[in-house]
Amino acid sequence: MPFQSIFVISEKKESLYELCFGARKLSDQVTAVIFGDRTAAENVADCGAKCVLYCPTESCIPEDYCKAIASEVKKSPCALVLLNNSVRSRCIAGKLGAYLDTAVITCASEIVADNGDIVCKRTVYGGAAISSQAFTGSYGVITVGNGIFGDIDAKYPVTEKIEQISEKPECTVKIIARNEKKSGGTNLAAAKRIVDVGRGLASEEDLDMCNQLASLLDAEVGCSRPVAENNKWMPISNYIGLTGTTVKPDLLFALGVSGQVQHIAGINKSKVIVAINKDKNAPIFKNADFGIVGDIYKIVPALIKKLS
């Protein structure tokens, strides 16, 4: 099914530009939907869209506009909707999909036009396979993985067409508080070097040793899912893997990481992988450029000495 028009929905300015840039590669008929007032819309008038629709959110949350947005999309006989892959975007995507009678393709790692069809790739079975998928109906909703369209190397004219969305929001849940999260400050997705800590670490205090190594290597520190989720030794935003952050550093240094398939799916774009693990059968060694079968508690302190 060829999609003549594309709707880009974003609550964040950066992802709006990235998504519009990607959308323009697929179609000239791009409509941007943003959450905020007319001024916010005017601020993004050069995003590449033909039209910017704004949804004021003083008294509601973006999700409350899903039916209103679906009505706008339905004005096109067939259309594609692109969102980023944030928690809120996935919620908007799911609702829109239900109203437009389509499933959602989540966290697409590639979106290409193929003979008039839009074909998406996404990872399934915890990283074991890549699935190629296309929508069968008149509408499709996709959440887009980080950075898949590459660097924005185009400038677009400022659009004059800025309008408030015509339908009113429908409030289904009431927001009673909102706390900004204290940001950890690490941006693993963009890090050039990463020390990746796994369950081989015996206690939380031993993170000091990992941090010390990281600082000597000028690296950020990430971890595997259980270290963040079960042990709670690091913030959830620091875990690497298919369901967490996908990284692509020049060097990934895995300490006591066994190498579960979901974790490997998050690190396999690294240029060089170094691994230390006690268990010589740990799957991480099949994915390492250089590995030592040994005790991190002996090797890391010795390496720190050499590096200092």
């Binding site: 009678d101 074991a128 396979a129 699935s131 190629s132 929508f135 994915n287 030592i292 090797i299």
Partner: peptide, 24 residues
């Protein structure tokens, strides 16, 4: 269904040197 699964393939494994040594 509203999605057509065109193919499902195991991704090409990244080539790794796998220089593994034993001992600490």
């Amino acid at each position: 269904p509203s999605i057509n699964n065109l193919s499902q393939q195991v991704p090409d494994q990244q080539e790794r040197r796998m220089i593994i040594i034993e001992g600490d």
